[in-house]
Design a binder for these strands. Sequence first.
DNA 1: TCTGGGGTCCTAGGACCC
DNA 2: TCTGGGGTCCTAGGACCC
Length: 414
Amino acid sequence: MERIIFHVDVNSAYLSWNAVWDLQHGSSLDLRTIPAIVGGDPESRHGIVLAKSSPSKKYGIKTGETLFSALMKCPDLKIVPPRYSMYLKASDAMVEILREYSPVIERYSIDECFMDMCHIRKEDAVSVATGLKDRILKELGFTVNVGISTGKLLAKMASDLQKPNKVHTLYKEEMAQKMWPLPIEDLFMVGPRTAEKLRKMNIHTIGQLANTDPSFLHERFKKYGHMISCYARGIESSTVKNEGTVEMKGMGNSTTLPFDFTDRISCHNVLLSIGETLVPRLRRAGKKAKTLSVHIRYSDFTSISMQNTLPFSSDSTSLLMEEACALFDDMWNGEPVRHLGISFAQLEDRFREQLSLFPDHKSEKMKKMDQVMDLIRKNFGEEALIRATFLHSPVRAFSGGVVEKDYIFMNSHL
DNA sequence: TCTGGGGTCCTAGGACCC
DNA sequence: TCTGGGGTCCTAGGACCC
């Protein structure tokens, strides 16, 4: 029996959510109706476009470009800062509604969900999706696109067809008409690099890709070639993965520094501050890490990474950060540093203790200290406790993660 | 006023063992 | 001194997604 899958995609998510929040808190201006973007702070070198309103699209503004460049295209552009914790609440509020329609929902990202809708009839799909879309608009104040098909890939391609506030179907029999004329880079998993290579091979549309010999694509692009060949022909059969059923493979945190750092100690402090949010997150996820990697981006934008697999796995902030600093010292060439990151891989369950013949009193103590610090911060706030090394340092004691504090619960009615 | 941050997966090469 | 192949694990980098 054929499946029915919905893909729900919030239109200009960050910008819409900012707009709705502002309206609900007394603003008379709807950001969605003017050239506006959500953007980072150029002062701290986070100045890129994160989301844009549709009027700003008319100026040719693209997600990911610099605010400087966006302002050149539209000097009157309204720029608002991101509010990540509010986005999480908005996303949760939407998922709560989706759950009334299906027990199997996969949160693909903060603003996209797949829904297994196999319990409805194909001929009812469009009206159910339309009802869902309209309800989200009425109750939460923002628009979504809903894509409908028999699989996740085509549902996702469908939700991308025409925006905003639309329901589209993209069944196999509609591919030739709706999907194949599209440019190659519109296909899921074909990014700018691959699109360029394909164009050089005279493949410009998804239809042309679908008609290219799969074995040729496999030869040229290996496994990846086989995959995009299947995608172009609508072949894909993965299931909708309910929340909590997907195992976390890795976890990381990184940050662009407000200016280039040229001394080792400041870089170490940044790594420590990343660890102060990252390792507690690891512990909250019930994991410990066996592999740790450090990433450096230099001021010329070249970047390097190095990883180290420990003989055991750990969730101790002090131990892991000691490793991170040691790795940094190994790999740093002394050039100015623009960006630093740490990530963990080979995660294991936290409570699967590896017994040691000789109890290590130092690590026992460090583990207890981590627990106490987690507890104090949970009860008294993140900044109730900071490492002494940050007292006289320009580096903030915490970096990455969610920093929004002034959130007021999102009103579900306008 | 040049270019964010959090993920996943794949590849190629090397180490090491049998 | 030179010559094998298979399997597994690790590493650095790069592609893609949002």
